[in-house]
Structures are given as C-alpha cells and as structure tokens.
C-alpha cells in the first residue's frame, strides 16, 4: 500500500513542503482585507524572502545568540522531519513502525523552538511571546495527543501506512468527526498560526518574533509555515483516506486533499479573531479533553 522512496525522496520532501508553504503564504496575503490583487499575492512569498535576505540583522543587548538563532533551525528541521512519515500517495520517505509517535515528537519541538526564540533576544515582548506559546502548548497538546491516539486506535497500528489502509472503506474523518476537527484546531495551535497567533501577536509588537530580523526571521517564519503544512498534510493519511480517490492517481489526490485542508486552515485563520491562550486553555481542558477521550472510547468500542 505504502512504499518507501529511495534516498532522494528525502531531498524532494523539503521542496514539496516549501512549495506548499509558499502557496499558503500567497493565499494568506491574497485573503488580506487590503485586497492586494492576484499577481501581488502570488509574488508575496518571493518578495518576503528576498526582502528578509537583504535585511540587516538586528542586535539586542546581552542576547543569547546560540539559543536565539538555534530556535529557527530547530523549528524548520523538526517541521520537515515531521513530514518524513507522511505518505504522498503511495510514496513515503520513511514508513516508521511508530510513525504517529514520530510525528508527535517532531512537532513538539516547536515548544522548545518558540520558547528559545522568545528567550534569546533578551527582550521583554519576545519573552512574553515565548511564555504564551508554552501556555498555549499545554492547552492544545493533550487533546492533540488523544486525537492521534484515536486515529491509531481505529487502525490498530502506529504505522501511518496501516492507518491509510484501514480507511479503504470509510474515511476516519467521517466516523471520527470530533477527532478530525480537534486535530485541525491543534494544527493551527502548534504552528501558532491565526487564530492562535497570540504568541506572535501584534499586541506584543510581534511577540516571539519581535526582535527577529533578516535571515533569522526568514528561517523561523519558514519553520512556522512548513509546520502548518506538515500538520495539514498529516491530516490526509490520518483522517482523509490518504491517496484514495476516483480517476486521479493517488499522489495527485494526496496533493489535492492537502491543498484543500491547508487552504481551509488559512481561510479559517482570516475569519476568526485571535484566541487568547487563557481562553483556549479552559476550552481545551473543559471541553476538548473530555470530548476527545469520549471519541477515543467510542472508537475503541467500535474496533473491539
């Protein structure tokens, strides 16, 4: 069902992720109320990258450079490694026997990365942003883990290939709707994308990103968008039947489904107001944790 690519698959993967991330940035700019127009929106990611590459690096007093600059590198590497187990149609870079756990372990690196990005510059606004993300992480992570567990339960395996195979008859999104919705919400949370962008909020002059400039800002922003893409792409094998679909080849179905999920996430970010983490924390612990546990219970009973 799912087969590993040769070694060069690992080189293609970052290119695919970056292409999706650029498309997501273009869509994000295109949905902007300023109505910048189609051409400007398509050119937006390239312009942003070029601008950041020539921008001078901002320095702050007594910054911890190693931890600060390391943050972006950790985020972008973890975001790419998270997709290592995500199949594109039939091909996957590495079909680990514990793919779900691997994905979870990689995306949780964002906790460390964003806190470090906030800590490093020795700036109050950035520091508050870093702490906000840790608080947000404590809110989204438990429901997120229960949801991943639920998908694995439905297939009886932690291997992503097996989870795709288990959806031959019925997509998990159809009979685990709560898990699917909570998964999408926590993907936005982990990538601190809108509406969960309070850690990098405008009220903090950019929060964790406040003092970042030039190539450092480029690396961290790229990591953030690639993480969002990785999360959206993983929704396809976990809940939307992977590459299954009529007429089109399976790799194309994977791409189409990923694009739809990613587009829906970016669009939702524009329709919803920023969620503060103290609000989300209460919703997560009082509503989402019980709801996802119930979902897991129902799925276990059905599978039994």
């Amino acid at each position: 069902m799912v087969e590993q690519t040769p070694w060069w698959g690992a080189l293609v993967l970052p290119a695919v992720l970056v292409a999706f991330a650029a498309a997501a940035v273009a869509l994000d700019r295109g949905l902007d109320p300023a109505r910048i127009g189609f051409g400007a929106a398509v050119a937006a990611p390239g312009r942003a990258v070029a601008g950041l590459l020539v921008q001078q690096r901002r320095r702050t007093l007594a910054a911890d450079g190693l931890l600060w600059r390391g943050a972006g590198v950790v985020l972008v590497v973890a975001a790419v490694l998270a997709s290592m187990v995500t199949p594109l149609g039939r091909w996957v870079v590495s079909d680990l026997s514990v793919g779900v756990v691997w994905f979870n372990a990689m995306e949780i690196m964002a906790w460390a990365a964003v806190w470090l990005a906030g800590w490093g510059p020795n700036s109050a606004f950035a520091l508050v942003g870093g702490y906000r993300f840790v608080a947000q992480g404590l809110a989204y992570e438990l429901p997120h883990m229960f949801v991943l567990t639920t998908a694995a339960l439905g297939a009886g395996s932690l291997r992503i290939g097996d989870i795709v195979a288990a959806q031959q008859g019925l997509w998990f999104a159809v009979w685990m709707p709560v898990a699917f919705v909570v998964y999408l919400v926590s993907v936005l949370g982990m990538a601190f994308a809108r509406p969960f962008d309070h850690p990098a909020g405008a009220d903090l002059a950019g929060g964790a990103l406040a003092e970042l400039s030039g190539v450092d800002r480029l690396v961290l922003s790229a990591g953030r968008w690639v993480l969002l893409v990785s999360g959206a792409a993983m929704a396809v094998p976990l809940f939307l039947g992977g590459g299954a679909g009529p007429l089109l080849p399976d790799w194309l179905w994977s791409l189409v489904k990923t694009a739809v999920v990613l587009g829906a996430l970016v669009w939702a970010g524009h329709r919803l107001p920023t969620v503060r983490m103290e609000r989300y924390a209460e919703i997560a612990w009082m509503v989402l944790v019980p709801a996802t546990l119930l979902q897991a219970l129902i799925v276990s009973l059905v599978v039994l």
Binding site: V101, A105, W111, A112, V134
Partner: peptide, 10 residues
Amino acid sequence: ILMMVMEMVV
C-alpha cells in the same frame, strides 16, 4: 525524545 522535549520546556 518526545517526553524529554516536553519535560525540559516545562
């Protein structure tokens, strides 16, 4: 790796 990243950030 998963647990240690979470634990060390906390």
